[in-house]
Design a binder for these strands. Structure first.
Length: 415
RNA sequence: GGGGGAAUGUCCCGAGUGGCAAAGGGGGCGGACUGUAAAUCCGCUGGCUUAGCCUUCGUAGGUUCGAGUCCUACUUCCCCCA
């Protein structure tokens, strides 16, 4: 699947060369379709949280690359399917969200990723849809007769999303069992509404995609396609986008642009080239050059990666600010205004400050951090957990820098 | 319907003779070494007003000076017989 030269279409050549392609139904026919006409394609995102995280970035990049190659992407928000919950890859049923929660998550998600795609009325402007528009209105009996009859329960039981749950003896409700059918129906509905021919997603969605393709053939006699991207892990094998502090959210109000920049800056050496290809728009030749850097020189490539990834999500000037904050903090070791800042009243104990700024989860954890020589106040290690911090500790700039370890720094500025 | 087994530190896996804040991993955090990398080594890893106190071993009761450990009931899951 990695040989880009076998494709004729610009999109699939580029997509493959960047390491985005995992699997594809009928690659030859899809390639021909891409080469021949403007293709409408979609990816669905459920609204389970107020923000997507880095784990969804490959999918978002797919939509972006489709658009760049002159095709038309559909961003499908799962306002309806989120009410059911996707069982794929999960051992346990997810908590059900309220309709209001789903709606508010949807708004927030869309806001967070607006820079990645160009929406509008043009021929390859992105379209936003919400499957609640059609799923909420389904009538049970007609739906079962028109759509349900095309699904074989025997076959559904063999799909990984269901099979794995059954094999591991984890309960699966009938509600979740229906998720696959809803997703399949989405594909058909998007075909009817927008002439959508392709669904893309992560490789764990293969079964759901194929179900949609089958359904399209049966009810619309349409030839639909599926394209999956690899599950991205780091070179050390960890799932990407999960850090100790939790998921790497895309929305700025959950993970500041500076922290987002830092996330990319801390990429492992062995991931730099791959991540540049997957997560930036830089030309492949430029990436090849950056990737050849060795030793400490590779840090330059990581900075480029952080700049590009942050600029794409938040805009170029915000990325530059983040880069400058990082440069001042790490290269000069000085105070940088762009660090996460907390307004806290000042005569206070260090333990309280560490907890209030999120550097420690509890007083006990803060004590342990101090015992391990890991907490620093204005770059000086704190040795006494009972230390009281007052205004005299403020720098000339009127702030206080508190650090946990070498990398996590925050500022405290009294109100 | 009958019989047997399992549930442990709210990240995961997992040991646990009646004295247990509970072995050992993984993961995570901190330190050393570095390049804000990896690998390696060391420390920490329930909470609090931290020489002490409080809350934890599926749920609810009970026996005991003392229960993760014994008894009873319940819940969920696994295996066997019908």
């Amino acid at each position: 699947m990695s040989d880009a030269s076998r494709f004729k279409s610009d999109f699939l050549r580029e997509f493959t060369a960047r390491g985005c392609l995992y699997d594809c139904t009928d690659p030859e026919a899809l390639d021909a379709l891409f080469a021949r006409e403007r293709v409408t394609a979609y990816i669905g995102f459920d609204c389970t949280a107020p923000s997507l995280h880095v784990g969804s970035l490959v999918q978002l990049m797919t939509l972006r690359r489709l658009q760049q190659a002159g095709h038309r992407p559909i961003l499908l928000m799962g306002g309806g399917t989120t009410k059911i919950g996707d069982p794929s890859g999960k051992d346990e049923t997810r908590l059900l969200l309220s309709d209001q929660q789903i709606e508010s998550n949807k708004q927030s998600i869309v806001k967070g990723i607006q820079h990645l795609l160009k929406f509008g009325e043009g021929p390859c402007d992105a379209i936003m849809a919400d499957n609640a528009e059609w799923l909420d209105r389904l009538e049970y009996i007609p739906f079962l007769r028109d759509i349900g009859r095309h699904f074989s329960v025997n076959r559904m039981l063999t799909m990984d999303s269901v099979k794995l749950r059954l094999e591991r003896e984890q309960p699966m409700s009938f509600l979740e069992f229906n998720y696959m059918i809803m997703q399949a129906y989405d594909f058909v509905e998007l075909y009817r509404r927008y002439g959508c021919r392709l669904q893309s997603a992560g490789s764990d969605q293969w079964g759901n995609i194929v179900s949609g393709i089958d359904l399209g053939r049966r009810v619309e006699n349409a030839q639909l396609f599926g394209l999956t991207t690899p599950l991205i892990t780091t070179a050390s094998g960890a799932k990407m986008g999960k850090t100790a502090a939790g998921a790497v959210w895309l929305n700025a109000d959950q993970r500041s642009p500076y922290e987002y920049w830092q996330f990319w800056r801390n990429t492992e050496d062995n991931d730099v080239g791959r991540f540049l290809r997957l997560f930036t728009d830089l030309p492949l030749a430029e990436i090849a050059r950056l990737e050849r850097l060795e030793g400490a020189e590779l840090n330059h490539a990581k900075i480029v990666l952080a700049n590009e990834a942050t600029a794409m999500l938040h805009g170029r000037s915000i990325a530059e600010e983040a880069a400058e904050t990082a440069r001042r903090t790490f290269e000069e070791g000085t105070f940088a205004e762009g660090l996460p800042t907390f307004a806290l009243k000042l005569p206070d104990g260090v333990l309280n400050l560490a907890v209030a700024t999120g550097l420690a989860a509890s007083n006990s954890e803060a004590r342990k951090l101090i015992a391990n020589n890991g907490l620093r106040l204005n770059d000086v290690a704190v040795s006494d957990p009972r230390l009281q911090v007052d205004e005299s500790a403020l720098t000339p700039e009127g702030v206080l820098k508190l650090s946990s370890g070498k990398k996590k720094h925050v500022l405290v500025r009294p109100p």
